[in-house]
């Protein structure tokens, strides 16, 4: 395995395009090193992007949104007070990935590129309407996060296409997000189901909603019909119950060692309901 430390993304793209064999990128490494250990999909070339200027920065853009570098760690996100205040759901999704040790290294972009339908940080990014900046030999484009995963372990990124940053839109008043997951233990498990909800309110009534389900399909899925249940409502028990059922109905999980299909279908509704309530409370300003 050849280890590369490019000092710019264009250099990384060049290395990638000219490399023979499997190329992987190293940011936090918390998935790549596990694959190396197990001996699955061991790359021939590993491109460490951490020496590229700016990759560990969290920047407030002029338009009021945020740009989060590709190698920003979970700890950096959690410690960023303003970002955490504006996007608590997105930050808590990242924070749920692994242990304190993992948090020092793991990144949003890594979590996204690993392509797992159970990735904890991805539903929150999608619910937030986040995009990623993708650089390739033909320049930089902005792609919706929800368009990146295409199946278990698969993304639509081609050879020489590298994500440089995650972009979050400007946060407005009376908006709130939340991410919750279900795991058998209290920590250290992969989500059995997960759900992110992002809401904006007007006079305590939901004006827009995005609901994203994790671990109940081959990839993280946007649950538009579930979000539609919430529009124009102020989230009483009745609406929550309808919403919960809708999420269960939309879920298309499989049975595996982490949970049965039946369990996932049931519990995604429970988790979605709890996440919606949390997001709503946050949007109201009740924390």
């Amino acid at each position: 395995m050849q280890y590369h430390t490019p000092s710019s993304f264009s250099e990384a793209v060049t290395i990638s395009n000219s490399a023979d064999g499997l190329v992987k990128y190293l940011a936090g490494g918390t998935d790549v090193l596990v694959q190396l250990k197990i001996g699955n999909n061991s790359p021939d070339h590993l491109i460490d992007i951490k020496k590229i200027p700016g990759v560990k920065e969290i920047a407030l853009r002029e338009d009021g949104g945020w740009t989060i570098g590709a190698a920003v760690s979970g700890v950096q996100l959690t410690n960023h007070k303003k970002l955490s205040r504006e996007w608590p759901g997105l930050v808590e999704g990242m924070e749920l990935v692994g242990s304190a040790q993992i948090q020092s290294r793991a990144t949003l972009v890594g979590n996204l590129c690993n392509g797992s339908p159970a990735a904890d940080s991805v539903p929150g990014m999608i619910a937030a309407g986040a995009t990623v900046s993708v650089v390739s030999s033909s320049g930089t484009t902005e792609v919706l996060v929800e368009d990146i995963p295409v199946g278990p372990g698969l993304t639509n990124l081609g050879t020489g296409e590298i994500i440089t940053a995650v972009n979050l839109p400007k946060r407005n008043k009376h908006e709130g997000d939340a991410y919750l997951r279900f795991i058998p233990r209290t920590e250290m498990d992969i989500a059995v189901v997960g759900c992110a909800v992002n809401l904006s309110l007007e006079n305590e009534v939901i004006r827009s909603a995005k609901v994203v389900l994790g671990a109940v399909g081959p990839k993280v899925e946007v649950a538009t019909p579930a979000a539609e249940c919430l529009l124009g409502e102020n989230l009483d028990e009745n609406i929550l119950s309808i919403f919960s059922d809708k999420c269960s109905e939309l879920a298309k999980p499989i049975s595996d060692k982490r949970g049965s299909e039946e369990f996932r279908k049931e519990v995604i509704g429970v988790i979605a309901k709890r996440a919606a309530k949390k997001a709503y409370d946050r949007a109201l300003g009740n924390k």
Binding site: Y3, L26, V34, S73, V75, A100, Q101, S104, R105
Partner: peptide, 19 residues
């Protein structure tokens, strides 16, 4: 395998030696 790497707590099995 916990170590402190550049001031942060890490699992040293998930860091490459060359890093």
């Amino acid at each position: 395998c916990s170590c402190i790497f550049d001031g942060e707590l890490v699992s040293s099995c998930l860091v490459l030696g060359v890093e």
